[in-house]
């Protein structure tokens, strides 16, 4: 059975590489409504995404991606001229509403700026094709989540959505990791904050630091090998 899963995953890996790796390198998916001239092709249902779903297996490690700094940009702080971290700490666990966080114009600008990285979405697609379940594990405002969820949720690319604004607890709090631990016995966490990686490891998860400039896929593959249940490696 395990051999069969691996064989299927390998076939899908090859298909994924053919189908989803952008020929011209990393790019972005625009999260704004598709009414303009923006490229949202990656978000449209495609045969690859449909194909990748059946291979998802609970026998393989769950891969949990951070959002800002890993799958998407920018951080709210980069648009706020005088960011207030205390208010952010309340917003990110749902203790205040966005109206109490910043002004409507900045809120609108942030929504317009927020975009997913197509290079990273391609990586997620390849993992799905190998049979891994995917979680999005993010410290993020509840009010911003629909923007992301509407776009990649429909594609079936993400199996589990763990948003601090919905959970009421944020990374690196151990209670956040407990939610992930409840989803799978083996969980690999990808995050751009080293503090979160340390905390995830302390909670018994496998951490992969998404440091800039490094080959994230290679580091992730190495971590999946460590987890001992990876599909075939590229």
């Amino acid at each position: 059975m395990r051999m069969f899963i691996r064989a299927c995953a390998f076939g899908h890996l090859l298909a994924a590489r053919r189908a989803t790796v952008p020929a011209d390198g990393p790019g972005l998916v625009d999260l704004r409504p598709a009414s303009g001239s923006l490229d949202v092709n990656v978000l449209k249902p495609d045969p690859f995404l449909t194909m990748s779903e059946p291979t998802s297996s609970s026998a393989l490690p769950l891969v949990a991606f951070d959002l800002i700094g890993v799958l998407a940009e920018p951080s709210w702080r980069e648009l706020d001229g005088a960011p207030d971290r205390d208010r952010w700490h309340r917003l990110r666990v749902g203790a205040i509403d966005e109206d109490d966080f910043w002004d409507p114009a900045t809120a609108a600008a942030y929504r317009a700026c927020l975009r997913l990285r197509t290079d990273r979405l391609a990586l997620v697609s390849r993992l799905r094709a190998r049979g891994h379940r995917i979680a999005l594990a993010t410290n993020f405002a509840r009010a911003w989540l629909p923007l992301v969820r509407d776009q990649i949720g429909d594609s079936g690319l993400v199996d589990h959505w763990l948003c601090s604004g919905e959970l009421g607890v944020a990374k690196p709090d151990p209670r956040f990791w407990a939610h992930l631990r409840g989803l799978a016995s083996d969980v690999v966490v990808i995050d751009d904050q080293r503090g979160n990686i340390d905390a995830a490891r302390a909670a018994g998860l496998i951490g992969v630091w998404a440091l800039p400039g490094a080959d994230l896929e290679a580091r992730l593959d190495a971590a999946l090998l460590t987890a001992g249940a990876s599909g075939p490696q590229p």
Binding site: G25, P26, G27, L28, P74, R115, R117, P212
Partner: peptide, 10 residues
């Protein structure tokens, strides 16, 4: 285009 910028620097 923050995301493109991050990918470019990487």
């Amino acid at each position: 285009n923050a995301g493109d910028a991050a990918a470019i620097v990487e």
